[in-house]
Nucleic acid binder design. Structure first.
Lengths: 339, 339
DNA sequence: TCGTTTATGGTAACCGGTGTCAATAAGTCT
DNA sequence: AGACTTATTGACACCGGTTACCATAAACGA
C-alpha cells in the first residue's frame, strides 16, 4: 500500500510561501485584489507541493458541494451511458463529479430512496431520466429538499429551468407519414408501457399520422411492452400473429424494434420485403442488427449535456437549450410497400 | 425553488435533546458506551427533526470520505452499466456513493486525468475496468496516491486484494474445443485490440484448443478490431473474404460477433448453416440478434459486486471472491459442421 | 506636513462533524 | 466507611477550508 503521507493542506502552502491562509485562499479562488508577486509566489509553492484543495472542507465551508446525481430506472443501457457521457462532457474541467443511482420506479420506497440519495450526499443537483422523470412528485420532492433538478422528457413536464425535452410526437408523425406515403396502410404498433408519457407521445404521433391519411390503428395490431427486448418480443409475436399481417410495425424504442425483427426473422419473414420495421432512439443495437433499423434519433447526449449545464450554472440555466429535435434516420429495415 | 430552510445540524439535535454534540455523535456512530435512555431520547429528536449527518463534515473530521470511483474506457455500454449495478448492489445501505469517470486510454493525459479524478474528490477507492486496468502504471499511481483500488482483468494483474478476474482463456478453450468436436476445422478469429490482455487471453484460449487437435489459426483467417461493432465489421469482411471461407468464427466480444453476423447476413450467408459464430461477454445484444449468439458468459456483475466489497471493507478484502468462472452459453449461432 | 484613501494581508470565528481526555455518578471491594 | 472501578457524559481542540472584519503600508490630496 505504501506511503500514506498526508496530503499538503492550505496551511502548509501558507507557511512555505510565508503568507496567511487567507492569501492562499485568495489565490485558489482567483481573487482580483492580490499583488501579482504574491500570487506568483503562492502559485509556485502550490505547484511544488502538488497541493489540491480538499473538496470536503470546501464543501463544508461553502455550505454546498460539487456532486451532481443521475437518477434512472431505465432498461436501456446505451441510453443511460450516453447520458452519463453527455453530463460528464459538460462537467469536464469543473470541480463537479457525477454520482449515479439507479432506482426502482415500482418500489414503494422510490421516494424514500431518492430523498435518501439527495440528503445523504447533500447533492447539488440531480438529472432525472424517464420514466422516473415523468413523476411530478419527484420534482416536488427535489424542490422541498432544496435540490436543483432537471427532468428529461418527451413532453412538457415543467418549466424550462427544470427540463430538457424532445419533440417525439412530431418526429414519429413525420416518420410514419413517410411510411404511409410509401404505401403502407396496415401499420402495427408495439407500444411502450402504459403510464409512460414517452409511450403516449410516440403512440400519439403514430395515430396522428394515420388519422391524417384517414387510417387508424386497429386494436389487434397494437400490443405493449415495457421497453425491454423480452417484452417487445412477446408483443411482436402477438401483433405478427394477426391476419392479415401488418406490412409495417412501429416499435416505441429500438430495443423492442430489435425484438420485432427477431420475431419476424424467426417466423421466416423477410425484412423489409414483407415487413417494414421502424424503431425509436437510435441506439447502437439498431445500427448493428441486420437489416439495420430505421429509427428516430433522439439527441440524448446533447440533452444530457444541456441538463448538466443547467445544473452546474443555475443562474444561467435558461441560456441552455431545453427543446431538442428528434429526427428520422432511414436505414434498411423499412421499404416501400409492394402489395 | 421554494424553501431553502437550513438543514438541522448536530448542534440542533444536541440542544433539543439536552445533551452534548459528542453524545449525539455517539448515537450516530452506534457507540456501545451509551445509556439506553439517552440513546432513545436522542434518536427521537433525530427522527423528529429529520436530521441527516452532513457527509462532507464527517469526511473532513474522519480524514476519509465515502466515494468510490469507477474508471473505464470501455466501448461496451452494457458491460459498464452491469458493473455499475453490481457495485451499487454492494454499496446499498452503506453511506458510500458511486462516482463515475470515463477516460481515454490513448490520451497522453490519461495518468493526469486519473490522478486528478482521485485527488480532486479524495476518492476512498476506485474500481478500474479493462483495458485501463491492464496498465500497471495505473495501479502504481493509486498506491502512490494512497487510494485503494481493485482492477478487473482476464489474467493475473495483481494480488488478490487488488483484483477480480475471470478465466477467459480456459473458457474459450472449452468453447472452441466443442466447435472442433462438432466438426469445424477451419476457424477464423476476430481478435480484440493489440495490447489488450483480454484479447491475448481469448486468442490464446482459441489457439490452445486448435493446437490440442493438431490445428492452427491461419494468418489470413485472423483480423483484429477494437471491440466496437464497426471495427468488428471491417475485420469480419476481411476474414469472410478468404477462400476457402472459415466454417466458424470466434469473435473476442459480442459486439464484434454481432458485426460478424451482420457481415455474414449481408453477404447472404446462412447462420449457422454456413457459418457458426461464437462471441464473448454475453451482453444483451448477443441474445437479441437473430440468430441468438452462442457466447461465453463473464460474470461481470458478480465481479463488480465483489470488487466494491473489497473497496469498502478493505480489512476484509481477502474474504471476497477474486476468481470467477466464465462459461459457455450455447445458443443458435453455432451448429455442427456439415461438410 | 498630516489626514485620507486604496491596496494588501492578517486574525479570528465558523462550517458540522470527530477524537482525546477529564469529570461525574454509581457500583464494588476490602 | 473509604478507596477503587466502571459506566456515562461533556469540554475542547481539531479537520481544511471560508468569510467578516481589522491592521498596516503606500499613495494621494490639501
Amino acid at each position: 500500500m505504501a506511503n500514506r503521507e498526508p496530503k499538503p493542506t492550505i496551511n502548509d502552502v501558507a507557511r512555505l510561501a510565508g503568507v496567511s491562509k487567507k492569501t492562499v485562499s485568495r489565490v485558489i479562488n482567483n481573487s482580483p485584489l492580490l499583488n501579482d508577486a504574491t500570487r506568483d509566489k503562492v502559485t509556485a509553492v502550490i505547484r511544488d507541493l502538488g497541493y489540491v484543495p480538499n473538496p470536503q472542507a470546501r464543501a463544508l465551508a461553502l455550505r454546498r458541494n460539487f456532486l451532481i446525481g443521475l437518477i434512472h430506472d431505465n432498461p436501456n443501457a446505451q441510453m443511460v451511458l450516453s447520458v452519463q457521457e453527455g453530463m460528464l462532457d459538460a462537467m469536464k474541467g469543473t470541480e463537479f463529479a457525477l454520482v449515479v443511482r439507479p432506482v426502482d420506479r415500482k418500489s414503494p420506497q422510490l421516494f424514500d430512496d431518492i430523498r435518501h440519495f439527495i440528503e445523504q450526499q447533500r447533492l447539488y443537483g440531480i438529472y432525472v431520466l424517464p420514466p422516473v422523470s415523468e413523476n411530478d412528485e419527484v420534482a416536488r420532492l427535489c424542490a422541498e429538499l432544496g435540490c436543483r433538478y432537471v427532468r428529461m422528457g418527451s413532453a412538457r413536464l415543467d418549466d424550462e429551468e427544470h427540463l430538457v425535452e424532445s419533440n417525439d410526437r412530431e418526429a414519429v408523425r413525420e416518420a410514419v407519414d413517410k411510411l404511409i406515403r410509401d404505401g403502407h396502410t396496415r401499420i402495427g404498433h408495439v407500444a411502450g408501457p402504459d403510464g409512460f408519457r414517452s409511450a403516449r407521445e410516440r403512440e400519439a404521433g403514430l395515430r396522428e399520422a394515420l388519422l391524417a391519411h384517414g387510417l387508424s390503428l386497429p386494436d389487434e395490431l397494437r400490443a405493449s411492452g415495457n421497453y425491454t427486448f423480452e417484452s417487445g418480443y412477446a408483443a411482436a409475436k402477438q401483433v405478427l400473429s394477426q391476419n392479415p399481417r401488418p406490412s409495417a410495425i412501429f416499435a416505441a424504442n429500438d430495443e423492442m424494434a430489435a425484438a420485432v425483427l427477431h420475431a419476424a426473422l424467426e417466423q421466416g419473414l423477410e425484412v423489409p420485403r414483407q415487413l417494414s420495421i421502424l424503431g425509436f432512439d437510435d441506439t447502437p443495437i439498431g445500427a448493428h442488427i441486420w437489416p439495420p433499423l430505421s429509427t428516430v434519433r433522439w439527441p440524448i447526449r446533447a440533452m444530457a449535456r444541456s441538463a448538466a449545464f443547467k445544473l452546474i450554472q443555475p443562474d444561467r440555466a435558461a441560456e441552455h437549450k431545453s427543446f431538442f429535435r428528434s429526427e428520422l434516420v432511414e436505414r434498411a429495415s423499412t421499404a416501400p410497400f409492394k402489395g
